Simulated assay, not measured.
Amino acid sequence: MPILSCLRRVKLAIYFILTTPSHHQSIRTFRFGIPLLIKTEYRQFTTEADALRFLNASGLDLPIPRLVDSIAIDGNTYTVMTRLPGRLLRDEVDQLSDPEVQAIVDDIQAILHRLWTLEQCPEDAGKVMLSASGHGLPNPMTFFESYWGPCPSILDCYFDLGRHLRDPDIDDWTPDIYVAGQPDLVNAVTADRVVWVHSDLRPQNILVHHGRLSGIIDWENSGWLPLHWQVHALRGARVGYTNRVRSIWLNVVFPPETEAGFKASMKLLRYLPV
Rank of each mutant, 00 (worst) to 15 (best):
P2D: 15
I3F: 12
L4N: 09
L7D: 06
R8A: 03
V10Y: 12
V10G: 14
K11A: 12
K11W: 12
L12Q: 00
Y15I: 10
F16V: 00
L18P: 06
T19F: 08
R28Q: 08
F32G: 01
F32N: 01
I34Q: 05
L37F: 08
T40E: 14
R43L: 09
E48F: 07
E48I: 07
A51D: 04
L52T: 03
R53A: 15
R53D: 14
F54E: 01
S58R: 00
G59K: 00
L60W: 05
L62G: 06
S70K: 03
I73E: 11
D74V: 02
D74M: 07
Y78N: 05
R83S: 14
P85I: 05
L88Q: 11
L89E: 11
L96V: 03
P99S: 12
E100G: 07
V105I: 15
D107F: 06
I108V: 15
A110F: 14
L112Y: 10
L115P: 07
E123R: 15
D124A: 11
A125T: 11
G126W: 10
G126C: 11
V128T: 14
S131Y: 06
S133Q: 03
N139Q: 09
F144A: 10
E145P: 00
E145H: 09
G149D: 03
I154G: 02
I154Y: 01
L155V: 04
C157P: 00
C157A: 14
D160I: 03
G162K: 01
R163V: 09
R163Q: 11
R166A: 14
P168V: 10
T174A: 07
P175N: 08
A180T: 10
Q182K: 15
D184H: 11
D184N: 13
V186L: 06
T190N: 03
T190V: 13
T190Y: 00
A191S: 15
A191W: 05
V194H: 06
V195M: 02
W196V: 07
H198V: 04
R202E: 08
Q204I: 00
N205Y: 10
I206L: 10
L207R: 03
G211F: 03
G215V: 06
G223T: 03
L225R: 02
L225I: 00
P226I: 05
L227H: 14
W229M: 13
H232P: 01
R235Q: 09
R235I: 13
R235P: 07
G236R: 12
G236Y: 09
V239M: 13
V239K: 14
V239H: 13
Y241W: 14
T242S: 15
N243R: 15
R244S: 11
R246H: 09
S247P: 04
W249K: 05
W249H: 05
W249V: 13
V253W: 04
P255K: 07
P256W: 10
T258I: 09
T258N: 02
E259P: 01
E259M: 13
G261E: 06
F262C: 04
F262D: 08
F262A: 04
K263D: 14
S265A: 13
V274F: 13
